[in-house]
Design a protein around this nucleic acid. Structure first.
Lengths: 191, 191
DNA sequence: GTAGAGATGGGACAAATGTCCCGTCTCTCG
DNA sequence: CGAGAGACGGGACATTTGTCCCATCTCTAC
């Protein structure tokens, strides 16, 4: 159940995780604290120990849109831009509630992996590409309610623990509409 | 203006392209012919010499949804599933009109790159991940008309040459609605 | 305990988007 | 030239989805 960046995917990140477990220091984030802002390069990489983070971006109206999450046990960082290319992040990474994270510097992990696990980046990028591609196709091919039902079946815990606002935003719909989808579901089940 | 898979991105694929230019054989596809179907592993990899291809998938109603294109000069193949993992494609690759392609086998390219350009996959996967991620964010953050306007400004030729149906499907909206967006645009310009 | 903040479900209405359909236009084929 | 196929723009209407709002509920701070 490892998640690098916000992709809910089954990638073997043990090389990276072991390094963090051995070298990380514990940091506590209050709700709303950010690991990185859009436009900043993310210098840290962590494993979530408690609480959760959301990845967000701003739309043209200046409203926050949730693009992904990192829960307990997940790796949290801006892999795609900061880790790979030393470029500023396109997203914010925000604590959804008080959260503990074991963090190390991106530079240190990069050095370690390059020396000890030279194929890590090839593997991780390829598998994340696979996942990003699947998600891209999902956006095109599936309706919001289809995606909601998949989320519920694959990650039942997620939909229960998170605020409705954030789930709706993640699905690309309004809170009001997610309520409608949920109501239709329970109504259907009651008949 | 290289495109690996349907991602319109500026990746240096010269190593791959040079190999195809030297070893490829020319194949002609009629409109509607497929390079690969969903569920098949794609064994070929090509450079489009004339015409164009569309990447498509089926939604839950069984309707075709366009997820990307490959135009003249672009590489066309199922990189994410077939090339990387030898897994069956999640998409169809269909000739949008009569098209000529210089093709080689995926196996041959893979062997060549592994020997002569050992960093190719790391590079290509990382950059495609970057592009796939950007697109994923776009889906979340931008409205259909915002995406239409970006498409028009970045690829004006594309929107002119393609059937309206296919552009609309690629943008994730109906043909009717794309017409509305276009009309609003010209109306605005006339005032 | 109590007041305030924030999350929640849902009503009423507005806006966005899809579906169906038609007349027109262009192109090909005979 | 004439007929049929297919792409196109857009009207009319239906459906989906968003916005605004409110009453309720829970939790926290004092």
């Amino acid at each position: 159940m490892a998640r690098l960046n916000e992709f809910l995917t089954e990638i073997d990140l043990s090389a990276m995780k072991d390094y963090i477990a051995d070298n990380g220091i514990l940091k506590v984030y209050a709700k709303g604290d950010m690991i990185v802002r859009e436009g900043q390069v993310c210098r840290y990489l962590g494993i979530v120990k408690s609480g959760y983070f959301k990845y967000t971006a701003l739309n043209s109206n200046g409203n926050e849109v949730v693009t992904g999450f990192a829960f307990s046990g997940d790796i949290v960082t801006d892999y795609v831009r900061s880790f790979l290319f030393d470029q500023p992040a396109m997203v914010y990474i925000v604590a959804g509630c008080e959260a503990e994270v074991l963090i190390v510097s991106v530079d240190a992990v990069r050095r370690h992996l390059k020396e000890r696990h030279p194929h890590f980046v090839t593997e991780a990028s390829s598998r994340l590409l696979h996942e990003a591609y699947r998600r891209y196709l999902d956006c095109h091919v599936k309706s919001p309610s289809e995606r909601y039902h998949e989320l519920v079946t694959h990650n039942p815990d997620v939909t229960k623990k998170l605020p409705v606002n954030e789930v709706a935003s993640y699905l690309g719909i309004s809170r009001r509409h997610l309520n409608r989808i949920r109501k239709a579901e329970t109504d259907g089940r009651l008949q």
